[in-house]
Amino acid sequence: MKKIFRFLGPYFYLLPAFLIIFVFRFLPMIYAFRVSFYKWGMGGAEKFVALRNYSTILKDSSFWQAFGNTIYFSIGVVPTSLLISLFIAVLLHQKIKGVRFFRTIYFLPVITSVIAVSMVWKWIYHPQVGLANNILQLFGVKGFNWLSEWRGILQMFFAFLRVNFPIKGPSLALYSLIIVSVWKGLGYNIILFLAGLENIPGQYYEAAKVDGATRWQVFRHITWPLLSPTTFFVLIMTTIVSFQMFAYVWMMTGPPAGGPLGTTNVLVYYLFDHAFNFTRYGYGTAVAFILFIIILILTLIQRKAVERKVFYG
């Protein structure tokens, strides 16, 4: 009897977590995979449609618009956030007074909820009395219709220069969300870079100092290469997170959300819209699996990179 208990013991420890994860993570995914092959509404399964949900999605122009917007969003957020946060982290690493103070301030937006952040920025972007346009007016610049401007930022820029340019770029509305997202995520990337910088052995810098290297040379030949695992991690993490953007669209755009003219409709909003506003669960789960594959590929790239970090780092 005691022997049986001894054998079963470990499973008792595992059981609570296992039950939750099995019932609320694993089962839903299996179930949803089945649902994605059906026309499935409020009342449940209506009709088996095989792969038709998937093919309809891939033929839907608003899906491709959402896909394009998501890519625009990532391209807008990732490099900007990466460069600014790396720059700030290097500055913070210079052993100056008040590092902790600055770090705390930069981190404040990270722990603030997206809803609160969206609310505050919606107010800042207000076309008549918002802070953004007020500040621009101090410099004699006429304000923008930030969140309801459907014209592309490149389109606006080249129209201002009176030059013809074929690419419109993300709408100013989408770009406004990009700015908020960079602002919110900066602190997190800064502390990741700071942690990376602290891992670089000090003797490299001392040796460089002896050799009389300039600041740029030190950065180019010591900091940048030795920081590359962190940089890669930040790059992929920020990309994955930017593919999951949702709350800004729900909170700040429209009505209807995703506007103007669908230029801020991103993949997760497209998914939410079809599944919950139109209660098309079959179609919604199919979108979820397409999104899953995209994010999975990014995650696997990151895993590979982390492994390399362990071996060569």
Partner: peptide
């Protein structure tokens, strides 16, 4: 492997359960 499922992907399946 379950950790790789991001919340936006999970909401519809979770809701169905």
């Amino acid at each position: 492997a379950m950790m790789m499922i991001p919340i936006p992907v999970y909401i519809v399946p979770g809701y169905l359960i």
